[in-house]
Amino acid sequence: MKLSIGLAYFSISILTIFSFLIPKKKKYDLIIFPYAQKGSNGYTVRISCYFEYLEKDNIKYYVCDIFSESYILKELSKNKSSHYFLYQQIIWKRICQILKAKNYKSAFVQRGLFPYYPDYKNASLEKLLRRLNSNITIDFWDSVWCHSNSKLLKITTENCDKISVVNNYIKEYFDKFSTKKIIFPIGIDFSKYKVKSSYSTKGKITLFYTGLPGNVEHFLNVMKNILKRLNDFINFKLIIVSRARYLIHGIDIEYHDFDESTFFEIMANSDIGIYAVEDNDEMRGKMAMKVLDYMSSGLPCIATPIGITPYAVNMENIYFATSEQEWIDLLILLSENEKLRKNIGINGRNTVEKNHSIRNSYILFKKIINEPS
């Protein structure tokens, strides 16, 4: 298996050396290389949400899909030989896709061209793409340097014209490279959200959180002492939408499996959305989709001020908590003040409508891909 990947690297080197012999006819507009694959959130909010707009604008585009996210995760759950068979399929497929780039005016690459392969170090695919296309944007929406080789990132940025990022923290990391940086916020499809219509409470205050099992575990580790102390002041229930089933003694936690037909209603019917994470490099580079979910539903939110939309303003459309005591004080404040919950919730919804609509995000996306190198 490794021999096949080595042969692919050799083929890439030959193609790169003789790329000047490959005829380049820019007949089409945009070629897109997803890192996250079909079925994943990263594919939806960063790639496929723009398809209908591209089609309406008669922009001729091609998406270089590899496999579905479910297939890739299934293969990665098997033994090591299955992993290498998957990597072998990915690299040969990507070589063929990159050769198509010679016919496109612009290329949009999500993170990198060899997804999932842990030993990728020399950015050979990015170098080949550079020879075939002269207007390349590479998009980052988290702290990839926490999991990637810094040398690989440097070489990658040297082989593109623009870097798009979701927040200032990621931009600051890439500022050490000379490539042009553009902040490109995530677009949200508001049509699927149920907007909160009432801010009055019904008995217990309901706190809301959603996430994958690993995220739920980290969240509860951060919030455990806060929730126990909060029990002395207010009567509350924590609603969590997740496959996880972690419990905290003495805390009323109600779990729901994720189901899109009920998720948005459960969220909108809650009283306060909460987002709590540890302060580290990885979390600072994320874009907290949970917070965008809360705001999109008009749900007032208290959050750790890390990895949040750059349009969040403390005490205007969100509340930031940086210590246990602040968390407790703010949870008590919001739980006892319906007017404040309503103001924060409505302001949050207005903020995301203005700054995170898919339409506005697409306008910026089109500007990025059309901007000359």
Rank of each mutant, 00 (worst) to 15 (best):
N122A: 09
N122W: 09
A123I: 03
S124Q: 06
S124H: 05
K127Q: 10
L129I: 12
R130V: 13
R130P: 08
R130F: 13
R131T: 07
R131V: 10
L132H: 06
L132Q: 07
S134R: 04
N135F: 07
N135T: 10
N135K: 11
I136L: 10
D139F: 07
F140H: 02
F140K: 01
W141T: 10
W141S: 07
S143F: 04
S143C: 10
W145K: 00
W145D: 01
S148P: 04
N149D: 11
N149K: 02
N149R: 02
N149V: 05
K151E: 08
K151P: 00
K151Q: 05
L152H: 01
L152N: 00
L153Y: 05
L153F: 05
L153G: 01
K154W: 07
I155N: 00
I155Y: 01
I155T: 08
T157A: 07
T157C: 11
T157D: 00
N159T: 05
I163V: 09
I163P: 00
S164G: 04
S164N: 03
S164Y: 03
S164P: 03
V166I: 15
V166K: 01
V166H: 02
V166G: 06
N167T: 10
N167R: 04
N168S: 15
N168G: 13
Y169F: 14
Y169E: 11
I170A: 07
E172L: 13
E172I: 10
E172D: 15
Y173W: 14
F174G: 00
F174Q: 01
D175T: 12
D175N: 15
D175H: 15
F177A: 11
S178M: 15
T179K: 04
T179A: 03
K180H: 12
K181W: 03
K181F: 04
I182F: 14
I182A: 12
I183G: 04
I183Q: 11
G187Y: 01
G187H: 08
I188A: 02
S191Y: 07
Y193T: 09
Y193H: 07
K194A: 08
K194V: 12
V195H: 07
V195L: 08
V195M: 05
K196P: 00
S197C: 13
S197E: 15
S198C: 10
Y199L: 06
Y199N: 03
Y199T: 08
T201G: 00
G203Q: 12
K204M: 11
K204H: 07
T206W: 08
L207G: 03
L207C: 04
L207Y: 03
L212Y: 13
L212E: 11
L212F: 08
L212P: 02
P213H: 14
P213C: 14
G214Q: 15
G214E: 15
G214V: 14
G214C: 14
N215M: 13
N215R: 14
F219T: 03
L220N: 06
L220W: 08
L220G: 06
